[in-house]
Amino acid sequence: MKKIQFEVTEKDIEGYAELSEDYNPIHLDNEYAKAHGFSGKMAHGMLSLAKVWGILANELEIMKFPAEFHLQFQSPVYVGEQVELNIMEKDNVVTITGKVMKGRVSW
């Protein structure tokens, strides 16, 4: 099993919002996110996926173009949080669990 960490910054979230044109205020407006029961602005799920894919594509040649991937977002990833990935590879399937230092997130 391999462990790798990544962080989602405010700049990452703004960059992904511009690129995808996904301006859902839950990602960009602290007050709005708090009003809907969250601790603050959170990363786009697909930004978290981009980060995970980036790490795996750097680490594992087979992850350059995976045939399919399934993700479950169990808890938000908030700005500035470190996510630790546990990566297990078996029979052409890579299983990754991401755990936030404060709280928990899984794919």
């Binding site: 859902n24 809907h36 786009h44 799920g45 995976p66 045939a67 399919e68």
Partner: peptide, 16 residues
């Protein structure tokens, strides 16, 4: 209608 939350995502790549 907001709030919109992504809870699961499945992606399949058939061709590059």
């Amino acid at each position: 209608s907001e709030p919109v939350i992504l809870r699961k995502q499945e992606c399949r790549l058939y061709r590059i």
